[in-house]
C-alpha cells in the first residue's frame, strides 16, 4: 500500500502530455520517462476519489473501501478512508497526524519515528519531484501499453521483492491521471485502487492538511 500511494503520487504528477510508445526499447522508455518527468513539474496539486479492492486470501470476499486523496507540492498529503470506516492520515513534511472516527482517536506523530510512514512519505515526496533516476533505481519498469500508458514495476531490492511481486499502473485514456494501480503480492493476493473524479491543480483548502 505504501508503494501504491507513492507511485500514485508520482504518476499523478507525471500524467500530463505523455504519449505512450508502442515499443519498449530502452531509448523509447527513457524518452517516455523523460516526458513524464518534464510534465510533472507543472502539477501543483491533486485531488481524487478512490475505490479500493483488496483481493486477499484471508477474506472470503473482496474487501471494498473508498475514500479521498489530496496532494499538494512539495510535502503535503492527505489519505482519507470514508467507508466502511472513516479514518486516515495527513502528512506535513516530517510530521503527521492520524485519526479514526469510530474510536475517536487522533494522534500526531513524527515520520522519522514511524518506519512505515517514513517509507510512505519518502517515496511520495521523492516521486513528487518526479525523480525518475530514483524510481528506476528502485524498480525495473516495463512499458506494457502506450494508449493508455500502462507500466509494470518490479522491485529491485530483495527486501521489497520479499513481499511485493509487481505493480501495474494504468493511466486514463487522455494520459492526464492514473486510472488504476494494482499491487500484486508474492502470495497471489492483490490490491486494486481505482481513481475517479481526479482534479489537477485545483487550489486545495489549507485545513485539509
Amino acid at each position: 500500500m505504501i508503494r501504491i500511494i507513492a507511485l500514485i503520487g508520482f504518476l499523478f504528477f507525471s500524467g500530463g502530455t505523455v504519449t505512450a510508445a508502442k515499443t519498449t526499447t530502452s531509448t523509447e522508455s527513457a524518452a517516455l520517462f523523460n516526458a513524464l518527468e518534464r510534465t510533472a513539474g507543472s502539477v501543483k496539486t491533486l485531488s481524487s476519489d478512490f475505490v479500493q479492492e483488496k483481493h486477499l486470501a484471508i477474506f472470503k470476499t473482496v474487501m471494498n473501501s473508498k475514500g479521498r486523496f489530496y496532494f499538494s507540492k512539495p510535502d503535503l498529503l492527505r489519505w482519507e478512508l470514508t467507508a466502511p470506516v472513516a479514518s486516515g492520515f495527513v502528512l506535513r513534511g516530517d510530521k503527521g497526524r492520524r485519526w479514526h472516527e469510530r474510536t475517536g482517536r487522533s494522534e500526531s506523530f513524527q515520520i522519522s519515528q514511524e518506519p512505515i510512514m517514513k517509507l510512505v512519505s519518502e517515496q511520495l515526496f521523492a516521486w513528487g519531484k518526479a525523480d525518475f533516476a530514483w524510481l528506476k533505481k528502485e524498480y525495473r519498469i516495463t512499458v506494457l501499453g502506450e494508449s493508455p500508458v500502462a507500466l509494470r514495476l518490479e522491485p529491485r531490492s530483495a527486501a521489497t521483492a520479499g513481499f511485493l511481486n509487481h505493480l501495474l499502473i494504468t493511466f486514463s485514456t487522455d494520459g492526464r491521471y492514473v486510472r488504476s494501480v494494482e499491487l500484486h503480492e508474492k502470495d497471489g493476493d492483490f490490491t486494486r485502487i481505482k481513481f475517479v473524479n481526479t482534479v489537477v491543480n485545483k487550489p486545495l483548502q489549507a485545513d485539509l492538511f
Binding site: V85, F89, I116
Partner: peptide
C-alpha cells in the same frame, strides 16, 4: 479488519494471520 484497509495495514497482513 480496519487496519488492513489502511495504508499502514499493508505490513500487517502476515501478523493478522
Amino acid at each position: 479488519y480496519e487496519q488492513l484497509l489502511s495504508p499502514e495495514g499493508w505490513a500487517l497482513k502476515g501478523n493478522v494471520q
